[in-house]
Amino acid sequence: MQRQEDETYLGRTVFKVIGHKQDYEITFFSKRGKEWDYSLHFANESGDEDELLAVDARIEEDDEWFDRLLDAAMDTLPGEE
């Protein structure tokens, strides 16, 4: 995760889903660190589109799962000086 000079945040998390062949990457963006937009895609190479859509649906429906993915990205944010 990086905080830009204009105070926006941009970060990503690569993760696996049990039973899926491909890894996923979720990219997070926020203007002030309160409301987050995201983009989900395959991390390395293309995979099953239905699996990707199922993961996206779970992210939309499961706030706890979304928060864990976001927390993983936030854990890489360099300390403020």
Rank of each mutant, 00 (worst) to 15 (best):
I59S: 02
E80R: 06
M1W: 05
P78R: 10
E45H: 12
E61H: 08
L69F: 00
L53E: 12
G33C: 08
H41M: 12
R3L: 04
A72Q: 12
A72T: 15
Y24K: 01
R12E: 13
L40H: 06
V17D: 01
T27F: 00
Q4I: 05
Y24I: 00
F28R: 13
E64F: 01
V17G: 04
D48F: 12
V14Q: 03
I18Q: 15
K21A: 04
G19S: 02
T8Y: 08
R32V: 13
A57K: 15
R3G: 00
Q22T: 06
E64K: 05
Y9V: 01
L40P: 09
E35F: 10
R12W: 05
S46K: 08
E60K: 14
M1L: 15
Q22E: 14
R58G: 04
T76P: 01
A54V: 06
L10F: 06
M1D: 02
P78Y: 09
Y24T: 04
Y38M: 03
E35V: 15
A43N: 06
G11F: 07
L69W: 03
E81D: 11
D62E: 14
F29Q: 00
E64D: 04
T8E: 04
D63Y: 07
F66W: 08
Q2E: 10
T13R: 11
P78T: 11
R12L: 06
R68C: 07
D56N: 15
Y9D: 03
E61D: 06
Y24F: 02
D23K: 07
S46I: 15
P78Q: 04
F42P: 11
L52S: 04
D37R: 00
K16F: 06
A72F: 07
D37A: 00
F66M: 11
D56R: 14
D71V: 09
L70V: 13
D63N: 07
E49W: 15
N44S: 04
S39C: 08
H20K: 01
A54M: 14
S46Q: 14
E51Y: 06
K21L: 06
G79Y: 12
L10I: 13
A72K: 09
A57M: 12
M74P: 05
F42N: 04
A57Q: 13
P78N: 08
L70G: 10
R58M: 09
V17T: 07
D56C: 02
D67H: 11
W65A: 13
L40W: 12
D75C: 10
A73P: 01
W36V: 04
R58E: 10
Y9L: 14
D48Q: 12
F15V: 03
D48V: 10
W65M: 11
V55N: 05
I18N: 14
E45A: 14
R32S: 11
Q2H: 08
V14N: 00
F66E: 13
I59H: 01
K16P: 08
E35L: 13
L69N: 02
I18L: 15
T8W: 06
E80Q: 11
S39K: 10
D75G: 11
A72M: 10
R68F: 12
Q4P: 00
E81Y: 04
E49L: 15
L70W: 00
G19P: 09
L69S: 01
K31W: 00
M1S: 11
D6N: 11
A54W: 03
W36Q: 03
A73R: 12
E80V: 09
I59C: 04
Q2K: 15
S46D: 13
L52F: 05
G33A: 10
A43R: 03
A57C: 05
V17H: 05
D75M: 14
G33N: 11
E5R: 13
